[in-house]
Computed example of a mutant assay.
Amino acid sequence: AEKVLDLFDEMKIEPNQFTLSTLFNACAVLNNNRAMKIGKKLLDEMPENYRNDNITSTSAIDMLMKFGDVESAERIFKSMKTKNIITYNATIKGYVANEMFEKALDLFEQIHLSVTSVTYTIVFNACAKLCNDRAMKIGKELLAKMPENYRNNNIISTSVIDMLMKFGDVESAERMFRSIKAKGTNIYGALMNGYNLNGESWKCFKIFEEMKEKNIIPDEIEWNILIGACSKSGMLHHCQYIVNQIPL
Rank of each mutant, 00 (worst) to 15 (best):
F77L: 03
I61K: 01
D9W: 07
D106T: 04
K41C: 08
E102H: 14
N125Y: 09
Y88Q: 04
N49T: 09
G234Y: 07
M165S: 01
V160Q: 00
I221T: 14
I180L: 00
S201I: 01
E220A: 12
D133T: 07
Q110H: 10
R151T: 12
R151S: 10
D162K: 07
K212H: 09
M165W: 00
I221K: 12
H237G: 04
R151I: 05
I187D: 09
G68T: 06
A144K: 14
I207Q: 11
M46P: 00
K203F: 05
F18W: 11
L5T: 01
S59N: 02
Y241G: 03
R51E: 02
C27T: 10
A97D: 15
K37D: 12
K137L: 06
T185V: 15
N32T: 07
K145Q: 15
V96R: 01
D62G: 12
F208C: 06
I138C: 04
A90Y: 08
P147E: 05
T185K: 15
N54E: 14
L197Y: 08
K145W: 06
A128E: 05
Q110S: 14
K203D: 08
E45H: 09
I86D: 12
A190I: 08
W202Y: 15
L191N: 10
A90D: 05
K212S: 15
D219R: 08
N149K: 13
R134I: 00
S157G: 10
E71S: 11
C204R: 02
T121N: 12
L130H: 05
N49H: 14
K12S: 13
I85F: 08
G39V: 07
Q240Y: 12
E209K: 13
T121W: 00
L42S: 02
A97H: 11
T82E: 15
I225W: 00
M36G: 12
A90Q: 09
I161N: 01
N153E: 03
E209V: 06
S231W: 09
I85Y: 10
K3Y: 10
E71I: 10
M65T: 13
F177E: 04
D219W: 10
E171H: 09
A126E: 01
Y150G: 00
A35I: 06
N153L: 00
I246L: 02
E109F: 08
I122W: 09
E10D: 09
E148P: 00
K40A: 01
L105N: 01
K41M: 12
K40F: 03
S179H: 04
N132F: 01
R51I: 13
K181S: 11
Y150F: 13
A60G: 10
L191F: 10
V4G: 02
A182H: 13
D44A: 15
M11Q: 13
N49K: 13
N52D: 15
P147F: 08
N193V: 00
I180S: 04
